[in-house]
Amino acid sequence: MGERAITVEGLVKTFGSTRALDGLDLRAERGEVHGFLGPNGAGKSTTLRALLGLIRVDAGVASIFGMDPWRDAVPLHRRIAYVPGDVALWPNLSGGETVDLLLRMRGADPRISRRAELVERFRLDPTKRGRAYSKGNRQKVALVAAFAAPVELLALDEPTTGLDPLMEQVFNECVAEKVAEGATILLSSHILSEVERLADRVTIIRDGRAVETGSLEELRHLRRTRVRAQLPGPVPDLATVPGVHNLAVEGDTLTCTVEPDAMLTVLQALTAAGVRSLSSTPPTLEELFLDVYRTSPDGVRR
């Protein structure tokens, strides 16, 4: 083991005048599910394609298991399975043929893999021709070929966008099984709930640059907590406390969002006022996400 699964430092990729990646940093440890979050066009797919050696980067370093994705593409790809965001199949090959082909090209033997079981679990009809599959079923073909392969890293680009909730459940189970086997999973997504459920650590990307990275707890710690308190007597004036936002008082109920550093002051003030009931909600990933995106690149809140 030893080497980290994915190390990316200062990755830059330009397409003409567009800077798709602008000094991206990304680290994923072995055995973790790493959520790679960002809206459409933030550079998620470009990053994955660079990590697979499909495109050449203009600057920066990328390594997978300590190897160079561009130079060592072939030996690396025996250890990686990739599911693109928009799966394209060969119109004339059946789904079963495509799964087996992809497995064999990854160096695995479909007959001794978990292929049959996965086809069953994903309820995939393997006899249909590629052109006849819906988007969700095309994704299932690629997912079966990825999960059935004995690989150490799975790079999944928005893998559940075409799946129904039942299949999403199967997907979650498969991810858990892979992690139990010791595999690393890089899960690119713009679906926050999915990442929140599956990921150990998260990198949030915006305009080709990582703006936040860390475990969900760490990220939450950096962000504001929503506080709601019912008070019997006069409501203390929190408006002057630095780090308190969105303050609202309605009758005897006070709501606000509080930065971590201001929490102690707020709690002391509320206790002094004789708080009757208190609830504090950690920020959801949704709020983290929106928070990051409300911030302009130079760090000034809009």
């Binding site: 079963g96 043929e97 082909l101 479909p110 006849a132």
Partner: peptide, 19 residues
């Protein structure tokens, strides 16, 4: 209507050239 295809792939269909 297209005929259904084989449920599994032939072992010979295993790389870019045979594909």
């Amino acid at each position: 209507q297209p005929r259904p295809g084989p449920a599994t792939g032939s072992p010979r269909l295993a790389d870019a050239i045979t594909l």
